[in-house]
């Protein structure tokens, strides 16, 4: 149990740092939108904002339930329900953000905006396989980032590709965390590294 709480504390630290980076990218993309008027930059900003809000929400929720209240295996059904709600809200927010990324950075105009709206609604309605949906949408985002990198062949596009690959890996690790607790921490590390890649992108672009 002590090991579990230690992992959760570390996870909260990683998640907080990732959330702050996501917020920085949000502000940067928003400023870029103000300068250029390119709506896709606004979408990108929205995506990162949803991600950061979801992360901060989970950090607060997890801290409250596990660290402050000391939730354990014999927790009340009400507390279990609340934890489940926070988990589902977090998972849904991430899927919404990934769908927004998929729409914003798509290289080909195949997906219409109304399709994206339907996908976002789906993310809220479907709950048991949130991780699977997240992985599926992220695979699309990674493919788009890969196409963009092979087209541009510059280091900035490479940072984005690496960032999204690491986010995808974090979800793949998380899906295996039920059978291996270590994978949970690996997932958080991969997520943090993914966001650090976005931070490096911001630093290198000036």
């Amino acid at each position: 149990m002590q090991l579990g709480i230690s992992i959760i504390r570390l996870d909260l630290l990683f998640e907080t740092i990732s959330g702050i980076i996501a917020l920085i990218v949000t502000i940067y993309a928003s400023n870029a939108y103000k300068i250029t008027g390119q709506k896709k930059l606004s979408d990108l900003s929205t995506g990162f904002m949803v991600l950061s809000v979801g992360m901060f929400g989970r950090v607060i929720g997890t801290w409250y339930f596990f660290v402050r209240l000391g939730a354990s295996e014999d927790m009340t059904p009400e507390l279990r329900t609340l934890i489940a709600i926070v988990t589902i809200a977090y998972g849904a927010s991430r899927i919404m953000a990934y769908v927004v990324f998929a729409v914003a950075i798509r290289p080909l105009k195949r997906v219409e905006v109304q399709d994206a709206g339907a996908l976002m609604a789906l993310a809220v309605l479907v709950d048991p396989t949130l991780e699977m949906i997240a992985i599926f949408v992220l695979v699309i985002v990674v493919i788009q980032a890969l196409i963009n990198y092979t087209t541009n062949r510059n280091r900035f596009a490479l940072y984005v590709l690496v960032g999204f690959i690491l986010l995808l890996l974090s979800h793949l690790f998380l899906a295996q965390s039920v059978i291996n607790l270590g994978m949970y921490l690996m997932s958080q590390v991969a997520q943090l590294l993914g966001f650090l890649s976005f931070l490096v992108l911001l630093y290198k672009t000036g």
């Binding site: 940067y28 993309a29 400023n31 870029a32 300068i35 250029t36 390119q38 896709k40 930059l41 990108l44 914003a104 950075i105 798509r106 290289p107 788009q144 980032a145 196409i147 963009n148 087209t151 541009n152 510059n154 900035f156 596009a157 940072y159 984005v160 992108l201 911001l202 290198k204 672009t205 000036g206």
Partner: peptide, 18 residues
């Protein structure tokens, strides 16, 4: 122009044309 170049690099990194 300096700001625009930064924004241009950032946007192109995500495959967004401006």
């Amino acid at each position: 122009l300096r700001e625009f170049v930064k924004v241009e690099r950032f946007s192109e990194a995500f495959g967004i044309e401006i």
